[in-house]
Design a protein around this nucleic acid. Sequence first.
DNA 1: GCACGAAATGTTATAACGTTGCATATCGAA
DNA 2: TTCGATATGCAACGTTATAACATTTCGTGC
Lengths: 168, 168
Amino acid sequence: MAPVNTILDRKLVFHSLGAVSEGLRMAEATCQQRGLQFTEIRRSVLECMWQSGQPIGAYELLRMLGQKFGRPLSPPTVYRALEFLQEQGFVTRIETKNAFVPCAFPDRDHACVFFICDQCGNSFEVQNAKAEALFEEDAGNLGFRIDKRVIELQGACASCLSLEATGN
Amino acid sequence: MAPVNTILDRKLVFHSLGAVSEGLRMAEATCQQRGLQFTEIRRSVLECMWQSGQPIGAYELLRMLGQKFGRPLSPPTVYRALEFLQEQGFVTRIETKNAFVPCAFPDRDHACVFFICDQCGNSFEVQNAKAEALFEEDAGNLGFRIDKRVIELQGACASCLSLEATGN
DNA sequence: GCACGAAATGTTATAACGTTGCATATCGAA
DNA sequence: TTCGATATGCAACGTTATAACATTTCGTGC
């Protein structure tokens, strides 16, 4: 492991199961504060995402919710909930997977870097202020105004690499 | 405009019309060198993409090629050509648009940053070695091996911003 | 409580994007 | 020219996402 100071200016979060209830509480509190409805569907969608621990597709959410509610839901229902959760910063879309993850940094402006393991499917979310600054510099040179950043780095995570090394 | 030295370590390319024939020549030469077939379909797909000047979807390519060939082509035909062109580094997929652009840096390992204007649709491709180094550092700390980078920055380009400023 | 507008959800259909599987044709080298 | 490898044709299907409109629920002022 690298020395601690190299990651001092970054926070790092693994989408672990332990974060489920905390993530939900946070979202609920934020909605209340903003005067928005944290409805059962929205809550359930977010809950499924935290429980999944991996990027999860809209149609898989649809199936899970169908089970949970005991009746079939339709795509617009799920997509509307996802749209709301994204607007509020509770959820981020993983473009390279057509899938969604609960956001570990809802406070910040979604300038996160995602490391996505192609083998196990896990995603790791990192904030990297220096990279943001570099992109802003490029943007300045181009006269470009950045509204949204999508940074997805695909490859193999530490645990999959070590499994590979020990002979699969 | 910012001082030149801030972009010294980067190349910058606008997907301009003038680059069409050069892009095609380069692809053809590279295929010959690699012993690969630069067939009419592959060539036509790449040509459409260079001519478009913007990220272009597979089904729009399909329509354009249908016109050009005077008969309808099927989705697999286009997707197979796109797959080939991506493998050879002539084309990059823009994940946030489900679209494709001809690659301005086919020699490098696709570690490009795309600035994509939401208003006019144009895309700008930039190489930023420093950002790459930062991500590699993060990856090192995570024990992660990066195989593929997707970096797409959405917003408003200089010309659209200036149009906006002068009263739409 | 109730009336009313705003917000959320239900429902149906369809658009947009991408893949599978197998048949046929073309290329390139022995 | 024969044969394997590569490329294309083609039909059907799978997946992801949205449009359009009806209905229900929520929150507020009376």
